[in-house]
Amino acid sequence: MNTLDEALLAAHLAGDNETLVGLYRAAGEAVLARDEVQGCFYLTHAYVFALEAGMAEAEELRAVLVARGREA
């Protein structure tokens, strides 16, 4: 298991939305240019956890997904 997977699992177990948003966002942005599906998959997770936690970052993430026709 790589470091990202371990960090994600730990954050999921802890219910740590802020960390989850950061990790998923970084993962999404890292692959978005070469793999839109994979990038938007990760960004969706970042968006959902930001939305759940009431983080202002949710709007930025939503805008990225809306621009690609993947969120309303």
Binding site: E36, V37, Q38, G39, C40, F41, Y42, L43, T44, H45, Y47, V48, L65, R70, E71, A72
Partner: peptide
């Protein structure tokens, strides 16, 4: 999330 497929919400 993913309601229209992976990454398609």
């Amino acid at each position: 999330p993913h309601v229209g497929g992976p990454g398609q919400n």
